[in-house]
Design a protein around this nucleic acid. Sequence first.
DNA 1: GCGGATCAC
DNA 2: TATGGTGATCCGC
Length: 634
Amino acid sequence: MDSKESVDETEAELDSNRDAHSSLKHQLLGPSLTKAGQDAVDQRKVGYSIRQHQYILPKETRETEGQQVSEIIYNASKGSKFFNHEEARDRSLTSKIERILSLKARLEKVDLTTELRRADEYIAELEHERDLSQTVVHIDCDAFFAAVEELDRPDLKTVPMAVGRGVITTCNYHARKFGCRSGMAAFVAKKLCPHLICLPQNFDKYNAKAREIRAILADYDPRFESASIDEAYLNLTAYCAENNLGPEEAVHRMRAEVLEKTKLTVSAGIGANAKIAKIASNRNKPNGQFRVLNDRASIMTFMGDLPVRKVNGIGRVFERELDAVGIKTCGDIYRYRSMLTKLFGEKAFQFLIHAYLGLGRTRIQPAEEYERKSVGTESTFSETGDRQQIRDKLRWAAEELEKDLSRTQFRGRTLVLKVKLHTFEVLTRQTVPPRAVHLAHDLYTFALPMLVKLEKELPDMKIRLLGLRCTNLLSTKRTGNNFFNLNPSLTHSQPIEWRPVERDPDPEQEFEQAARQERQDDMNELEILSQELSLDSESLDPTKDDTEGDSSPRHIDTSNQSWDCPICRRPYPSEDKSFNAHVDFCLSQQKIKELVKRSSLEPLPVKSQSRKRKISSNIKGLTTNSRQKRGYFH
DNA sequence: GCGGATCAC
DNA sequence: TATGGTGATCCGC
């Protein structure tokens, strides 16, 4: 073990000394070059593409490409503000790595048997709970945006093409051969590939296509999980059992059906959990699938020589830190298990051990069942130090955010202002307004002091981006469990259909979740009520002149029979404890009549909670651009 | 709880 | 000439 480590150290040292700019060049290559499939796989796929589309690129050219790509990117970027910022980040990471290495050197001299035992106990515990009973599939559309564009423009199939104007979001496989990658500035991509065709993105089109695909996936697992616009997880355990099919056959069938009905190719990974499925889906991309068998040995072998960078959650930075320590593959993790906590923290330790063991979640559920934590908007513009212009940007952000909050039915207890300086440095400031906010005027007014403070701290502040985000959300949704909907007549006219029991992996947990949700809904409703009835805060309210009626409590339905509050006339179940408190509160308000007048403008229709609706919203997927990106453990 | 940083797509 | 937007999580303080 000792000799191994010292070898790794020497390699790491060589790496960092070889070229002062090598790590920076690596950074500049962008996240996707290192993330996407191994070189060998890519090379093979180039051959595939050539056969498929008769697009010939001489082999020699391709091989020198790898050398040239980083040079071209480096030269295109050199001297820019963006480049300088990247350089600064690179320097700070390098010094962070130095600290990590000196800590590692100290740790090698001390007795770590306690830590070693703790790590081994943790591993044994996880091993004991390993679940190999499920068949999880990750579906990933191949070059999704580009592929959808090619459906409308078949002529683009044979030439390098990318989607995205300023920054490339997706490019087809011809463009990738030139080194073009998602996340790359378009002008850099054009340097790599002068003939590159850049199309503007058309999200409506991609969403429509994604819905078609999801409709197919739903037949294989009605509780499939949209992970993003072009990715999904399915649990095929039940489907395979019911149809007496092996996982490979089932996935083949599914992919063939998607191709036939949508003319789009998808790649798939099959494994015992989401993490393995996700990694496996990249193995035979594009238009391929790969399965890791559900036995411990297969999984350990698969993970053993897997570069850590392939694991979801390990990005460029963590990759470099791990590499410096001597961890290049998931198999390397084991050797350092006793010092991982001290080097990287407890969460990272647990995460890495999970990666080493090939463990991941087996619970797949519709994305909508994940609780949203924030709603925000931001936009980039040509840099400006003009205070009025910046206020206009803030106003615009506030208006955009109001729309998003209205669409998602949330308010924010906390408001976050984000700016990116002309140097690309990012700053955020947050505040807790006197009440949850959702109106543009409020958002603007409570964000402005943060901006003013920043302008005082940085008198010459020039910014290139401004954003607003609400966190600590307050839901204004009424779910089926909400007490306002427990009215018997309502339940009768719109019965709730329960999901089939056999699809329910953990009824107890589901029940607890439902109960928790119900309590949360009640709390939310009460909080909203108290906020809206709280005229005390109106002295603080900068939007008292609001005439849109939007701030009135329309979200409370008044069209159904129930027990209305005699003061504000809103429905309330009489048995609810808070009813009396509510009436007392109403009575104590002097300006209540004014409020009632506003609140009676128009009631909002009650939403149906039928299963049909649930599934259709699952197919519809995530709302615009919303990503369900989960951290180390989900 | 706040602000910075990292990560995914 | 020029390097995105949305959302989540973790860490140090």
